[in-house]
C-alpha cells in the first residue's frame, strides 16, 4: 500500500507538471466543458418561464441548480480513457506499460484524479460565478449534502470502471470511434446530463434506471439538491455499489482476455 501511495504521489506530480505546460489549452478546454451545461440551462430556464414558471416539477431556479450541479459532477467523473486507449493499442505505447511491475490501471486512476484536482480549482469558482448569473434555488437537507460525498466518490469510481472497460474494446476493434460515440450519446441522455430524468417518458426512465449511467450523474446530483427521499438515497447507493462490483469484475475479465489478444497478434 505504501508503494502504491508513493506511485500515486509521483504520478500526481507528473500530471500536474504536464498539464501546467499547456495552460492555454487547458483553459480553452475548460471553457468547452462549462459551455454545454450553460446552454442546457438557458434552454430549460426559458422553457420553464414560458410554461408559467415550472416544467415537470422544475422551476427556472431549480433548473439552474440542477445543471450547475450536473456540470460539477460531470467534471468530477468524466474520463478520456476510451480515446487514449485506442491510441495506446494502435501505436504500441501500451507495451512499455505492460512491462512495468504495476497494473496500468493505477497510472490512469492517478492521472485522472490529479487532473481533476487541478481543474476543479477552476470549475468550482466558475460554477460559483454562474450561480450569481442564473440564481439557482436549492432546498436541500444537511443529511443529503453529507450523503453526497460518498455518492460522488462512488460515482467517480463507477464511471471510471465502466469507461475503462469500454476502452478495452480497442483490443478487438481497430477503430473504436463509432462505439465511443454511441456510448457517449447514450450516456448524455440516460445519465441526466442533457435533461433531468424526471422529464423523460416513462419507458426511457425505466431504461435509465436499469443502466449504469444515471447512477454516476443524476443520482449524486439529485441527492445533493435534496430531491431524493432517504429510501431513494439508499436505493441509489445500492445501485452504485452493485454496478461498481459488476464493472470491476468485467474489467478484470476483459483486461485479461484483451492483453492475451494483444500478446497474440503483435504487441
Amino acid at each position: 500500500m505504501i508503494g502504491l501511495a508513493d506511485l500515486y504521489r509521483a504520478q500526481f506530480r507528473t500530471t500536474l507538471a504536464t498539464q501546467l505546460q499547456y495552460r492555454v489549452a487547458l483553459v480553452i478546454w475548460l471553457l468547452g466543458l462549462v459551455l454545454s451545461p450553460v446552454v442546457y440551462l438557458a434552454v430549460w430556464r426559458a422553457v420553464a418561464t414560458s410554461q408559467g414558471g415550472a416544467v415537470g416539477g422544475f422551476t427556472a431556479g431549480e433548473f439552474s441548480a440542477y445543471f450547475l450541479a450536473t456540470m460539477v459532477v460531470n467534471h468530477a467523473t468524466f474520463t478520456w480513457i476510451a480515446w487514449e486507449f485506442e491510441y495506446r493499442v494502435r501505436q504500441g505505447t501500451l507495451s512499455p506499460l505492460l512491462l512495468r511491475p504495476v497494473h496500468p490501471v493505477h497510472r490512469d486512476v492517478a492521472e485522472n484524479l490529479s487532473f481533476k484536482a487541478l481543474t476543479l480549482v477552476v470549475v468550482l469558482p466558475v460554477a460559483g460565478l454562474l450561480s450569481l448569473a442564473f440564481r439557482p434555488t436549492v432546498a436541500t437537507t444537511p443529511w443529503a449534502v453529507l450523503a453526497f460525498v460518498p455518492a460522488l466518490a462512488l460515482a467517480i469510481a463507477l464511471r471510471f470502471a465502466v469507461e475503462w472497460t469500454l476502452a478495452l474494446a480497442a483490443f478487438w476493434l481497430t477503430r473504436v470511434e463509432a462505439l465511443n460515440r454511441l456510448y457517449f450519446l447514450a450516456a448524455l441522455f440516460l445519465s441526466g446530463q442533457a435533461v433531468p430524468l424526471a422529464l423523460l417518458p416513462a419507458p426511457v426512465r425505466l431504461l435509465a434506471d436499469l443502466l449504469p449511467f444515471r447512477w454516476f450523474i443524476a443520482f449524486p446530483v439529485e441527492l445533493l439538491l435534496g430531491r431524493l427521499s432517504p429510501a431513494g438515497a439508499l436505493l441509489g447507493f445500492a445501485a452504485q455499489a452493485g454496478w461498481l462490483a459488476v464493472a470491476i469484475a468485467l474489467l478484470r475479465v476483459v483486461w485479461g482476455r484483451g492483453v492475451r489478444r494483444y500478446g497474440a497478434v503483435g504487441a
Partner: peptide
C-alpha cells in the same frame, strides 16, 4: 514523459519500481 524534465520521469520510475 515528453513534457516534463527528465529527472521527473526518473522519479516516476523510482516509484513504479519501488
Amino acid at each position: 514523459v515528453w513534457d516534463i524534465p527528465v529527472v521527473d520521469s526518473f522519479e516516476l520510475n523510482r516509484a513504479i519500481y519501488r
